[in-house]
Simulated scan of single mutants.
Amino acid sequence: MPGTRNTGVVALSGIAVAALLTVIGHLEVNDDLNPWALTISDFAVSDRGGVIDVAMVVLALATVAVMYGLRRTGPPPGRAVDLLLGAWVAGLLLAAVVPTNEPGTAMTTAAYLHRYASVVAFLALPAGGWLLARRDQLTPAARWLRGLAVASLVLAAAMMWSAYPGERVLIGLAERLLILTEVGVLTAVALVLARSGSSTRVVAV
């Protein structure tokens, strides 16, 4: 379906732009910030309203394009997938709008809201990816979706351990690996949509 292909291409373009903006954001911030010890949100708050915040919004919009493309391939993905992908989108947008605290300062109410929005997003996307692996349309990417979903959940657990009992040891590294796997989930789905050439019967989740 041409419309589905176009939606996949739009999603892939959005993912690529978000990745580029994130790299630019890392290069623009203060050289004293350590990417292995600090999260991407720590970088973003040092350049409030900068390209990293924009990258989160772009990634959320790319996800919306993926959701739209999935609906064009057949029956709706199902309420569970809609809720999980919707939670990822909402978490990204909320994290972009509500900043975390500056590194080394006390947590504020806004910072806690930012943190828990991020946690919800990080857990929702791999769960949604796992369910999407059951769709006939996404059979070519099913193994990737399941593998990336499991890797994302393992890395999310590692990040949460670092954030609490681990005293933030390598939290930046864990988060960046987590984001890579989660963006990989979106990319796998978008690639299948972009390569879609005909309508296929889809099993709703």
Rank of each mutant, 00 (worst) to 15 (best):
A19P: 00
V51Y: 13
M1T: 03
V57D: 05
S162A: 15
L173I: 13
W161P: 01
L178E: 07
V97M: 03
G49V: 10
G86Q: 10
A80E: 09
T7A: 13
L85P: 02
M1I: 03
T22Y: 07
L191R: 10
P99R: 05
Q137L: 14
P2F: 09
G104F: 09
L170P: 00
L125A: 12
G147K: 11
L38E: 06
Y164M: 03
R195P: 00
D82M: 04
L113G: 04
L178G: 04
N30C: 06
L20S: 02
A151D: 09
D31R: 14
L94P: 00
Y68Q: 05
D53N: 15
L70R: 00
S199L: 12
L20T: 07
L148P: 10
V189Y: 04
L177K: 00
R195T: 04
T109G: 13
T7W: 02
V54N: 02
M107N: 06
L61N: 08
T139F: 04
S46F: 05
D31N: 11
R115S: 11
L70Y: 00
N6V: 12
D47K: 13
V66R: 07
A87N: 04
G8R: 01
V183T: 15
P77W: 02
A65E: 01
T108S: 13
A133L: 01
T181F: 14
G91E: 10
V98A: 07
A141M: 11
N34I: 02
Y164L: 11
L145V: 08
Y68M: 04
L123M: 08
G69K: 00
V64G: 05
A37P: 02
G172F: 05
A174Y: 14
G49W: 10
N34D: 15
V29R: 11
V192E: 06
A194R: 11
A157L: 12
L191K: 07
I179F: 10
L123S: 10
V64W: 06
A127F: 15
E28F: 02
T4Q: 11
G86N: 07
A95Y: 08
A127V: 14
R134C: 02
L173S: 15
A90I: 14
L138R: 06
Y116H: 12
I171T: 03
Y164K: 00
L186Q: 08
P76V: 10
L38N: 04
A194F: 09
I24S: 11
V10Q: 07
F122K: 02
L153V: 13
L84S: 09
F43W: 05
M56G: 14
G25C: 00
F122Q: 04
L61H: 06
V51L: 15
L145H: 09
A110S: 14
L191D: 02
V23K: 10
A87Q: 06
V64Q: 02
L170E: 06
P140T: 01
M67P: 02
S13W: 05
T108E: 06
G197E: 01
L38M: 06
G14R: 05
T108P: 01
R135C: 00
A190Q: 11
G197L: 03
E102D: 12
T108F: 10
P99V: 07
P165T: 12
V9N: 06
E28N: 01
H26Y: 15
L177G: 12
D31Q: 15
R48V: 12
G128M: 03
S196P: 01
S199V: 08
L83H: 01
R168Y: 05
D31C: 05
V23A: 10
W36D: 14
A110V: 04
N30T: 04
R176V: 05
D136A: 15
T200H: 03
T105R: 14
